[in-house]
Computed example of a mutant assay.
Amino acid sequence: MDEKLKFRFYRLSVWCGAAVAVANTLAFSVIGKLTPPVAPTDSAATVTQFMTDNRTGILWAVVLMGVVVPLFYPFAVITSLQMRRIEGGWGLLSMIQLTTAVVAPTGWLYPLAVLATAAYRPERDPELIRLLSDQFWLTYVGVAVIFVVNVASIGIAALIDRGPEPVFPRWFGWLNLVLAVLFLPGVFVYVVTDGPFAWNGTYAMYIPTVAFVIWKVSMIVVLLRAVKTEERQTLGLSTAVPAV
């Protein structure tokens, strides 16, 4: 492959991650009106009414995510390719990042398919609709714990890089370790129905959501910088890369 074309693909892969983030925001907050979420303590009648009132938006939100979420794969791959530069080839950290990242699209789409099932037939028994709603929120919020390992692997890679021109800046390594910890509380949604650790709570929903936005934006900025640096080194360009 032509080297210049390769780096165009690399940059496009980074922007694929941005497309997923934008689609996720539109699907949940605008089209599906899933923000804020229903509460675990809501009655079956309340949940069913929400599903009925927002049926069209929820179904189209799932369609949007179904189209866009697969773009997370190139974003995951370009992240591991940059980590591979740190390890001098495919290594433990780059493979951990890749294998945990490929779960993300399934972790989004499968719960969304369950939500679509709940909204698809509003005439169902309200208890069945609430059951499907519970499965969606427990799965969607609970599986975020996978990102703890994913984000931590990126942070460790950034901190152990001893190259003359590090792939990722050191602040980015510490940021990822902090964000990894902030993703952890989501796993506790399985044992509580109210409070900050419930799926609509501060620790399980809102802090990880903010952490994800910070992570995604910083990842895009740092990956674009890393790709530009690699391109300069590979093609022998003299253009200086501004520090991030």
Rank of each mutant, 00 (worst) to 15 (best):
M1Q: 11
D2S: 07
D2H: 08
Y10F: 08
R11M: 00
L12D: 03
S13H: 00
W15L: 09
V20N: 06
V22P: 00
A23W: 01
N24P: 04
G32C: 06
K33V: 15
V38M: 15
V38A: 15
S43D: 08
S43R: 02
A45H: 12
T48A: 15
F50A: 03
F50I: 03
R55M: 08
G57R: 04
G57L: 01
L59F: 00
L59I: 08
V63E: 04
L64G: 01
M65P: 00
G66Y: 00
V67H: 05
V68Q: 00
P70I: 02
F72R: 10
P74I: 04
T79Q: 10
S80R: 08
S80C: 10
L81V: 07
L81F: 08
Q82P: 05
Q82K: 11
Q82A: 09
Q82R: 13
M83Y: 06
R85E: 05
I86N: 03
E87D: 04
G88A: 00
G89H: 05
G91W: 04
L92N: 09
L92K: 10
L92G: 10
L93Q: 02
S94V: 03
S94A: 08
I96C: 00
I96L: 14
L98F: 09
L98S: 05
L98V: 07
T99W: 11
T100E: 03
V102H: 07
A104M: 14
T106A: 14
T106V: 15
W108V: 09
L109N: 12
L109T: 09
P111F: 13
L112P: 02
L112Q: 08
V114S: 00
L115C: 11
T117P: 07
T117Q: 10
A118V: 12
P122M: 11
E123M: 12
R124M: 13
E127L: 13
L128F: 15
I129R: 10
I129H: 06
S133G: 14
D134K: 05
Q135M: 14
W137L: 02
L138S: 06
T139F: 07
V141W: 06
G142W: 01
V143D: 14
V143G: 13
A144L: 15
I146G: 13
V148E: 10
V149N: 05
V151S: 02
S153H: 07
I154R: 10
D161T: 07
P164W: 10
P164C: 06
P166Y: 06
V167L: 04
R170I: 10
R170D: 09
W171I: 01
W171N: 04
F172E: 03
W174S: 10
W174V: 10
L177V: 04
A180D: 05
V181S: 05
L184T: 09
L184F: 11
G186Y: 00
G195T: 09
G195H: 07
P196R: 01
F197Q: 07
F197N: 11
F197T: 12
A198W: 00
G201I: 03
A204P: 06
M205E: 11
M205L: 14
Y206D: 08
I207T: 08
T209G: 15
T209V: 09
T209W: 15
V210D: 12
A211V: 07
F212V: 13
I214K: 06
I214S: 09
V217Q: 05
V221D: 03
L223G: 01
R225C: 04
E230I: 02
R232K: 01
R232L: 01
Q233P: 02
Q233V: 07
G236S: 04
S238P: 10
A240I: 14
V241L: 02
A243M: 11
A243H: 12
